[in-house]
Design a protein around this nucleic acid. Sequence first.
DNA 1: GACGGCTCCAAA
DNA 2: AACTTTTGGAGCCGTC
Length: 565
Amino acid sequence: MFPRPRGIVPSGIGSQRIVLQRMTAGGALDGAEQEVDEPQLAAAVAALERQHPRWVWDDTSRWYPRLLAVHVRVERCVDLRLSHAILRNSSLTAGSALAASPACSWDRGALERLERPAEHTLFDFDEELADGAGEDTLAEFASQRAAVAGADDPARIGLLLAAESAGALVAAEMMYAGLPWREDIHNEILESHLGRRPAPGQRPELLDATLQRLREKLEAPTLNPDSPSELLKALAVAGLMVTSTRSWELKKLIHPAIEPLLEYKKLSRLLTANGWHWLDANVRDGRFHPEYVPGGVVTGRWASTGGGGALQLPKQIRGAVVADAGWKFVVADASQLEPRILAALSGDRGMVEAGSAGDLYAGIVASGAVETRDQAKVAMLGAMYGATSGESGRLMPKLTKAYPKAIALVEEAARAGERGEVVTTRLGRSSPLPGAAWRASQSEAYGENATEVDASRARGQARGWGRFTRNFVVQGSAAEWALCWMANLRRVLHEQATGSWITDSPHLVFFMHDEVVVHSPADRVDAVEAAIRTAGDEAGRLLFGASPATFPLSVAIVDDYGQAK
DNA sequence: GACGGCTCCAAA
DNA sequence: AACTTTTGGAGCCGTC
């Protein structure tokens, strides 16, 4: 999949000039080039796009939002910054010149992006990039091509780079389109829980009433429950001995103050995380425009930034996400994605079989491995996260006996992490190495002056890193499945589009790890659902070929996001 | 007053 | 219900 013929490289040669250079299928410049002023760039891109090139650029988040703003869509790209991060770390390209080269500006991409001012003109380059930026881009692309060509499995890492780059396009397009958001309904939700919007600095009426009730029951007239230490002291005075103020700890206590305390925490959370201030800051003209950060998590999951908290959107306020008149949301999530990924990764036929009927956990019960669905669920979570204690830990032997290959895969990943080694996902994203402090404490634990405390601490840290690598292979491979799913879906939606612009036809508006939301005209939802399912099937084939593993989707067609699930 | 560490909670 | 993974963000609180 990578690279395809005719890449086109936009790069800046000054503050306002951009060079577009054409490449052959082999990645060589063929001499065709254009130099355009910044205002003409979008038109030039749009004209070239008719030849269906793959754009090769340093950073999708730098170029694409401004193209989208003037209604220019591109079909495909290579995001050199994201690709570099993968190739730098991947065990598949460990022998490449790229991996051996010293850290450079391509490694600092994420940091630079955060430091870049929010407002600047499209081609107003940083000084270091203004000079020779084109050569740098071309050299980096050549270096990446060489790394892929020399990889242990070029098709595998190539697919990952293509999916990662397609994800960057999706992220920019979703940020552009925005998630439909009804401020009035959000306000109604807030008013029903908190009361009317108060003057700045004031507590909403219902939150204040709850606080007064709490203070009364605790006989603490000036208590600020937002201060954990103050709250702990007040609870102790009331005879409630707890070591933390987490809600689930407090729920175990029996005291008249607990009910208002839990209520206060819930209301306070709603107000501070998704209250009126959030609405003011994040919703404009009926759309929430979260900024996604592809590759923002070490495992390859996306992160989000900018205060919206898009990937932690609480279920409580999803009712404010309402489709436009005459439109619907098609909400799809991949059921039990991570355990199914583990089954496919390990080729554990028993676990694949357990998932074939639709509910993996029910299938595990049916196989006789455990007795209840809850046990199956908690045991699987424990296997993927590395639980050692509690019910989950106790169930592990049963799970190991029933699904030896699946459990062996996560156990081996954990052991590798404990030894300080890297682990690698299905398509080739590798975990980082543990830091210097970790290595130091490991080696010190076996030194002459090491105490039992040192050794114990080192073992604890080793196990902690093992839990990380254990989870990395599953979470990271699941993220790859999701990237392929979205890339396929984006392509199919575009092929089926009848409108002239992204937002005139069914389009992606939200993504959350294993779930997508498509905003669609009501009369197109059946085709959209079919496209989502086709894209999911194809993602399974891309990652696991002819494996019998299935990744069923649950799809809901709704008017508001709160109705889904 | 800025900053970093800590606690808590939302999501997958 | 958590345990056990990855995150972002708000508020508190001690330090500079």
